[in-house]
């Protein structure tokens, strides 16, 4: 199921830094944009001259805003091309196709307090969180990590929110253990950013006895970076597909003209689960459990690759 599509006109593009651009979008037909909740994202179908990308970006507008959406796109250094396309080719007035908002990182409705820890561009889902917390007067605390030269940019993005609750850490000393061990009961923890940061935050929280039900994370970026090339064989059609080092298995399959079921394209939702008939997957997803990974019978084709030169899929 691919779901309903939106035609969005680029209203404006604002450079925030050499690597960050903010895109404002409105419905091409002039209507209201569909509603969404904090943490939701849009998945764009970007059509270049010779290549297609499907990139997901968090909505950063307040969820009450119905006239327009906004997303912030970081130009990724070793990009598969989607973020470079957004930065260099997309112009105001252009129409982009996107899916209706989906949410894989919603806020807890029963949390007494929300503790947010982000790194770099991982701040984006929290921008819609903060707008929602503001209108509901919910308790929260945000810790954001970034490079010293970007501290000002992120400070600017967070300027509308209570400065006493917002902490930007740009290379300064920070005691994660002390923050995680001093929260009131009923606090939920959310983390988004580079894998290393999220792993550290979640591991430390578990060490301090946080239950799994109060830990929430969304991976951004690195999970679906490339790797060594390999060959995928689609059993049902017999198609033999060369997966290049700069594309994902799913992208290679789509490039060959197939449309396997998928949704988040980030290894989280489980929609693209595919049976492995031969070969050994290199699991990069957040969906399969330990047993499922070890059995090597399933693969999430949106992010995972093959350890073997060849992998045969039940597709």
């Amino acid at each position: 199921m691919s779901g309903p599509k939106l035609n969005l006109r680029v209203r404006s593009i604002e450079p925030l830094s050499p690597l960050l651009k903010r895109f404002e979008l409105e419905m091409a037909d002039g209507g209201e944009v569909p509603p969404f909740g904090p943490g939701a994202h849009l998945r764009f179908n970007l059509q270049g001259d010779h290549q297609r990308w499907k990139n997901a970006y968090s909505l950063v507008t307040p969820p009450t805003e119905r006239r327009r959406y906004a997303v912030i796109v970081r130009r990724v250094e070793h990009s598969r091309g989607g973020s470079a396309f957004m930065h260099e080719t997309v112009k105001p007035g252009q129409i982009l196709e996107a899916s209706v908002p989906a949410n894989l990182f919603p806020v807890s409705q029963i949390a007494r307090k929300h503790l947010l820890i982000s790194g770099g561009i991982g701040i984006t889902p929290f921008l819609s969180y903060l707008a929602a917390f503001k209108s509901k007067a919910a308790g929260y605390e945000l810790h954001h990590f970034c490079r010293a030269k970007e501290a000002e940019i992120f400070g600017h993005l967070l300027r509308d929110h209570e400065s006493s609750r917002i902490h930007i850490h740009a290379g300064t000393e920070f005691n994660l253990s002390s923050v995680l061990s001093s929260q009131p009961l009923g606090t939920h923890l959310y983390t988004c950013g580079p894998e290393g940061l999220m792993d550290l935050v979640l591991d430390t929280a578990r060490t301090h006895g946080w239950p799994a039900s109060k830990l929430h994370s969304e991976s951004f970026g690195s999970a679906h970076m490339g790797g060594a090339p390999f060959i995928a064989i689609l059993k049902r059609s017999g198609a033999e597909i060369a997966v290049r080092e700069d594309q994902t298995l799913l992208e290679a399959i789509e490039e060959a003209g197939f449309e396997p079921t998928n949704l988040c394209r980030g290894g989280a939702c489980g929609e693209c689960l595919t049976r492995v008939l031969e070969g050994e997957p290199e699991h990069r997803d957040h969906y399969l459990d330990e047993g499922e990974r070890a059995s090597n019978c399933s693969i999430m084709i949106c992010v995972s690759r093959a350890k073997t030169n060849r992998i045969v899929l039940d597709l």
């Binding site: 779901g3 309903p4 899916s99 939702c269 489980g270």
Partner: peptide
Amino acid sequence: LKFLLRLQYGQ
């Protein structure tokens, strides 16, 4: 349940 946990808005 597994299916419904993944139910998407608009679908």
